[in-house]
Design a protein around this nucleic acid. Structure first.
Lengths: 232, 232
DNA sequence: GGCGGTATGTTGGTATACCATAAGATCATA
DNA sequence: TATGATCTTATGGTATACCAACATACCGCC
């Protein structure tokens, strides 16, 4: 085969929207796919990611796969063993606990900062994200997207863009851990009530309450994860 | 030319130690070089990083350069514009301030955690790092290395490996900003006294004092940076 | 039968050549 | 002068080749 070795991906590349945002690069598509597969637990921890196999499975060339693996490595989802190549990163409760601790600090700070400066626009955005969350019953991706949006509004409003970057990267690892251990039923309770409490505190411009609400939420989430993972 | 297109790097690859840790990969060497060059301010903000030019300058192939650029992108030192390719990331005080804020949270937490559990071994390691810092008068890299080591001991002892990863990545951006604006004379005062205060607090297993010392140190560093950068 | 050495295959790492496309620059012509 | 065509450059993407390292299987020899 000469060129055009990946017709289905090429098609997907154009399919997103009618004429809009075409600059979706192959690398990004592959990145999204591989990341999703790892997070979903389709590869066991420690599984080798053999480049040529991935090339076949994804229908792309080694260059693309290698660059994507570097990115996933930076995200902590993949690690490369010397002379053995990339493997799916091992995760345990010790690491997850650290990540929850970091999120506690960053999200607490962001929520407080957001509450301190939130104007009507921010509050409306938060309300919209909450509505989207309510409307997204069942749709797994929709729930995730609405939740992500909710936090993004908070971080951005607080002017914590850098922290938002970090939290997003960390979330990959936590998502994987959750997918590996929690059942779908467990995940179906994303804590709308607690997020509403966060939104209410921000709506009242009460920084202390907002921080407290976020921290309570996270501590509870961490506790659930801990019970599932302790000793794993 | 067929193979062996980069003799000097290959040589460096073997030169490190007698028979030890050969698995230093070309990619890592190039990563270190390019990162150092960007941090040192050898490229202006927004400068395009033309792949083939870098290949010539570094004497390596495009594969290596591209993968390295992906890594630097994840570190926030490089950003890729659609259809234009990678450029050196722009930095301003707003971003630096965020990074200092994040470090305040993470390093404060790590110092407190370290102080809470530090044993004789940890204290000895900290003392050793401090001595190395004293001994490293003039050697710029040596100062940086000793400082890095000091904080690494703190984070590792506190069991905050994930946070240490994050701080290291953030440090690239801060280092660049400092190099762009501070003179060598300014940098020559890395605050040994303040680091000694941190070590003392940890030596006394006083978590509150350790956190306070770290936060004071960082606030001061941020203040110096702010005065240099305000409005830039 | 157990042992050490060799052959083979797989994998990662690197280099290079090629194509298609997009953006910008240049130039020729109406 | 303005507009459109062409040329250049840089990039994303792909294919391919080579080498080195490692693992494994095999094979002769003790």
């Amino acid at each position: 085969m000469e060129q055009a070795a990946h017709p289905e991906l090429r098609a997907e590349l154009r399919a997103e929207l009618r004429i809009d945002q075409m600059p979706q690069t192959l690398r990004e598509i592959v990145l999204g796919r591989l990341r999703a597969a790892i997070i979903a637990g389709r590869f066991p921890s420690g599984a080798r990611l053999v480049e040529r196999t991935l090339c076949d499975q994804l229908g792309v060339s080694r260059s693309v796969v290698r660059e994507v693996i570097r990115i996933l490595e930076a995200e902590g989802l993949v690690e490369s063993l010397p002379n053995r190549g990339p493997v799916v990163a091992r995760m345990d409760w010790a690491q997850a606990r650290q990540i929850y601790d970091i999120r506690l600090l960053l999200e607490g700070s962001a929520a407080a900062g957001c509450a301190a400066v939130a104007d009507a626009g921010v509050k409306a955005d938060l309300a919209a994200a909450l509505s989207a969350l309510e409307a997204a019953t069942g749709g797994e991706d929709a729930v995730f997207e609405a939740t992500t949006r909710f936090y993004e509004v908070i971080f951005r409003a607080a002017g914590h863009d850098v922290a938002w970057e970090i939290v997003q990267r960390l979330n990959g690892r936590i998502s994987r851990l959750r997918a590996l251990t929690l059942t779908a039923a467990d995940r179906a309770v994303p804590g709308r009530a607690r997020m509403a409490r966060i939104a209410a505190a921000i709506g009242a411009n009460d920084a202390g309450a907002a921080r407290q609400a976020v921290e309570d939420h996270l501590r509870e989430a961490a506790e659930i994860a801990r019970r599932m993972l302790e000793g794993a």
